[in-house]
């Protein structure tokens, strides 16, 4: 799967931001250095981005920039958030509607309501919950995903990674790729879900903050 690229110039036109803003966000590390892909074109070297990834990020920066300072935003995007405690209780997760009770019952049955869950676990539950809601996986496949990712959570929290879920002839396959890279299956494998962990962590953080604002 090759992702679509967008040139810097088109990006600015599409999002309506200026060069100054883009460079500013880069200086503040809101747009990571690795996202700037340099390629040579007939006008010389040009900078490109992965279209979906960067458009998504810029939309989010734009929507948050009235409420949050650039430094606060950085903590939302990077692995270290000041706002989200590493541990939230099961009760809080339910209250903020991050994970449905069905999933929590299945995977965290033995944990009491006021007991804390780790951030990694919450993200994992959120992912399974989302896939279940969309009807892409069954509950037993949820279990498989849980067992697959769980041992590698600390790794992907640190280095980012990719999660893929597919089926070949009805047999589910869950894959974790640590650090950013691509994963390729044989043609008979239907890939059902592909998720970057960084994106997943950000989504959960956004949900967490959104839940807090509604209070």
């Amino acid at each position: 799967m090759t992702q679509e690229l967008i040139s810097k110039k088109d990006l600015l036109v599409e999002t309506g931001i200026s060069y100054g803003q883009l460079y500013r966000w880069k200086r503040k590390k809101l747009i990571p250095e690795e996202w700037f892909i340099r390629k040579s074109t007939f006008t010389g070297q040009e900078t490109f981005f992965l279209k979906d990834e960067v458009l998504n990020r810029i939309e989010r920066i734009k929507s948050m920039k009235d409420d949050l300072s650039l430094d606060d935003m950085l903590s939302v995007f990077s692995g270290k958030s000041n706002d989200l405690p590493a541990f939230a209780t099961k009760q809080e997760v339910l209250e903020r509607n991050i994970v449905s009770s069905v999933v929590l019952e299945q995977f965290a049955k033995e944990i009491e309501l006021d007991q804390p869950l780790s951030f990694g676990d919450i993200c994992l539950f959120y992912l399974i919950d989302m896939l279940l809601k969309e009807g892409q996986i069954s509950r037993s496949e949820g279990e498989l995903i849980f067992q697959t990712i769980k041992p590698h959570l600390s790794d992907v929290e640190k280095h980012d990674g990719l999660f893929c879920f597919g089926r070949k002839m009805g047999v589910p396959i869950a894959t974790v790729v640590t650090s950013s890279g691509h994963v390729h299956f044989d043609q008979e494998v239907g890939v059902i879900a592909r998720y970057s962990f960084r994106k997943l962590f950000e989504e959960v953080k956004m949900k967490w903050q959104g839940g807090k604002n509604n209070e």
Partner: peptide, 8 residues
């Protein structure tokens, strides 16, 4: 420089 980009 090869390229300069900015607001002002």
């Amino acid at each position: 420089t090869d390229m300069m980009e900015g607001d002002d």
